[in-house]
Structure formats: C-alpha cells, structure tokens
C-alpha cells in the first residue's frame, strides 16, 4: 500500500513535470510560428496600427496615473526614512533610480498585463470559441500573422515607450511631492535627480520593458488562441493569462536585474 502511494506520488510529480515541459514547448512553438509567419509578406499594417493605438495610446492614462502615484508615494516613504539619517538630498536620485530601473518597467508591465493581456485573451478566446479563427483560416488568412504577430510586435516595441513615459511621470510625481509638500528647493531637487543619473538606468528599464511587452502579448494571445469550453473557458483563459503574465514579469525582472547589473 505504502509502495503504491509512493509510486502514485512519483507518477503525479512526473506528470506535472511532463505537463510543464509540454507547456514550454507549446509556448515556444506558438511564438516561433507567430514570428516566422509575421515576418513573411504580406504584412497587415492596418492590424499593426490598430494594435499600436490600443497598446500605446489607450494605455497612457492608466500607466500615467500609476506612475504619478507611485512616484509620489515613493518620495514620501523615502522622506520618512531618509530624514532620520539626514540624507534627504539623496531622495531625488533614489526616486529616479527606483523609477527607471524597477518601478517604471514593473508597474507599467503589470498595468498593461491587467489591461491588455486580459483583453487580448478575451478577444482572441471569444474568436476561438465562436469559430472566427477557423473562419480566418477558411478565408485563407494565417491567424498567427493576422491576430498574434501584430500584437506581439507592437507590445514589444511600444512597452519601452510606455516605460519611458512612466519614468518621466513617476519622477515628476516625486518632484511635486518633494517641492510642493516637503518643501525641497526646486532647483536642488532637479539637480539631485539628474546628477547621479546614468543612461544605463533608463536603458536597462527600457530593455526590461521590451521583454515584458513581448511576454505579456505572447501570453495574452497564447491563452486566447487555445481557449476552449465557451464563455467559462474564455474566462479561465483570461485569468491564466493575467496570472502567468504577472508572475513571469516579476520573475523576469529578477532574472534581468541579475543579467543587466
């Protein structure tokens, strides 16, 4: 009996491991198929422009507000800690480094994953369960090229832009709190913000943004593309998409930080 239980336990572990490997294989094949079909002509520019507007333009309010409040809160938190060490002058540069290296890319990616990853999965998933993806194929249109590639391309290119905007607004939020609430000298604050700034701080954040953008769109499309089971299935896929994107954003952030610094 005990042997049987142990065997069952090992069978389950083995099954989970195989499922994990299978998932990695499926995601890899999905991304390769999408990219290979996408780079071959004809190009669906209208789709790319539409996705650029969705991902870039319509994400701005959410990303901007998140960055503003994060920058403000960061400055307040820093002040309460740094003032005890009489290190208030370091606050602007700490806010700048935190925003450009970490908070900017991670917050932007999490917000975009919640907003766009979910909507991509829901849209493509609904298309799957209502046979619209099958209809695309029967109309001789490659669904990877038409649906997936434009999203992955624009996500990868535009997320760094959103991260940059997030960085600027976050630093601005810190400036507003620092100057108008904590009574820092405006010129000093600006000087301290940029005095210790390195291009790599911003650049590394943008690289992270591109990686996160690729992953969010890949997960959004992948979970939607393989949705099944009607409305309930699409709901489940949407949840899986957001959860897998969010976890991977934090994991990739950790890995990229090790690699880039």
């Amino acid at each position: 009996m005990c042997f049987k239980n142990r065997r069952m336990f090992l069978v389950r572990i083995g099954g989970l491991f195989l499922a994990f490997l299978s998932a990695i294989g499926n995601v890899t094949m999905f991304s390769v198929n999408s990219i290979v079909s996408g780079i071959m002509p004809p190009y669906y520019l209208k789709q790319i422009v539409q996705q650029a507007i969705q991902i870039g333009y319509f994400s701005l309010p959410v990303v901007g507000m998140t960055a503003l409040f994060a920058g403000m809160a960061m400055t307040l938190q820093c002040f309460s800690g740094f003032s005890e060490l009489t290190a208030e002058n370091a606050i602007p540069s700490v806010v700048m480094v935190a925003m450009t290296r970490e908070l900017g890319p991670v917050l932007t990616a999490l917000m975009v994953a919640g907003r766009l990853g979910a909507s991509m999965t829901a849209e493509i998933g609904t298309m799957r369960v209502t046979e619209q993806i099958d209809a695309l194929t029967t109309l001789s249109v490659n669904s990877y090229k038409y649906l997936v590639f434009p999203r992955i391309l624009t996500g990868t290119i535009l997320l760094p832009f959103l991260v940059f905007i997030d960085d600027v607004i976050g630093i601005l939020g810190g400036y507003i709190v620092g100057v108008y609430y904590l009574n820092f000298n405006a010129a000093n604050y600006i000087h301290n913000t940029f005095a210790s700034m390195k291009m790599w701080d911003v650049g590394s954040g943008l690289i992270k943004g591109a990686v996160f953008g690729f992953w969010i769109c890949l997960m959004g499309c992948y979970h939607g593309y393989f949705s099944k089971g009607g409305a309930e299935g699409v709901g489940r896929s949407t949840t899986n998409s957001v959860v897998s994107s969010s976890i991977m954003i934090l994991l990739l952030d950790c890995v990229l930080t090790f690699v880039l610094f």
């Binding site: 609904t126 298309m127 209502t130 046979e131 619209q132 099958d134 209809a135 194929t137 029967t138 109309l139 001789s140 249109v141 490659n142």
Partner: peptide, 18 residues
C-alpha cells in the same frame, strides 16, 4: 490557403468577425 481560396464556409453560428 490557395486551395481554401476556392472554398466557402458557412459556419453554424455565422462566425462573423465582431
């Protein structure tokens, strides 16, 4: 895809693009 160009399909639910 070339062969499918000469096929039309009427899906059960229509499958019109929303």
């Amino acid at each position: 895809f070339q062969t499918l160009l000469k096929c039309g399909v009427l899906f059960q639910g229509g499958a019109l693009f929303d």
